[in-house]
Amino acid sequence: MTGPQDIYFEDVWFSYNGTFVLRQASFSVPTKEFLVIIGPNGGGKTTLLKLMLGLCSPQRGKIILFGEYTPREASHLLGYVPQNTNINLDFPVRVIDVVLMGRLRGLKFLYTKEDRRAAEEALEIMGMDKYANAKMRELSQGQRQRVLIARALVSQPRILLLDEPTASVDVEAQRILYDRLRELNEKITIVLVSHDMTVISSYATAVACINGTVYYHGSKEITSEMLQMAYGSCPVELVAHGIPHRVLAKHDGDRDA
């Protein structure tokens, strides 16, 4: 526990309808960490993200952000990128209007010029400024994802929380996305839920395995040994569909290439 801690969980328990998906979760995420959350489906990955965002409240334990706030109080410092697949594609909405949602605050009524400028800047950061007036439906999955990240960035958050940003995004678009995240990571903390093992081997500075509870591997070096240790302490083979070693080996190769 050295340096400032952005996220702090102490003995957090959470249940849906009496079934605990999270027990005794205690860990802390230092500033500028690139944390990847992995675990089996239904293991509580999204729940963990929602707890950090204040969308769910724990039954027991406490969550402190930036050393002093509850997640609700800190919500203006958080940028949330929800799972793209939950979004209604037929919805008639332009890119710029989606990004402006990131400037909403409580009961604020109208957007100001500054809000619009911030929205355009965020789109530029994500390389999507040319598409400001396009309909969301007209974009590719990867482009849509970049718009959602722009929306999360427009409020200048200190933590960016992403739920499976690369689900159904093609490989090239994935690379662009991850490179952008790495650039952003120089300034802000990133928390990312993923099924994707590439991101762990090449981008993550810490890995949290979730399966009933949280196993936090907060190390600078995530070596193959580290990962194997991680697999030892939580059943990650479920995530990798029984072939964790093959997945790892393949990505080691990728990194050399």
Binding site: G54, N86, I87, M101, R105, G106, S155
Partner: peptide, 11 residues
């Protein structure tokens, strides 16, 4: 458009 996101913005 996106209820969960709206919540995080304090809507």
């Amino acid at each position: 458009y996106d209820e969960d996101y709206a919540r995080t913005r304090g809507v």
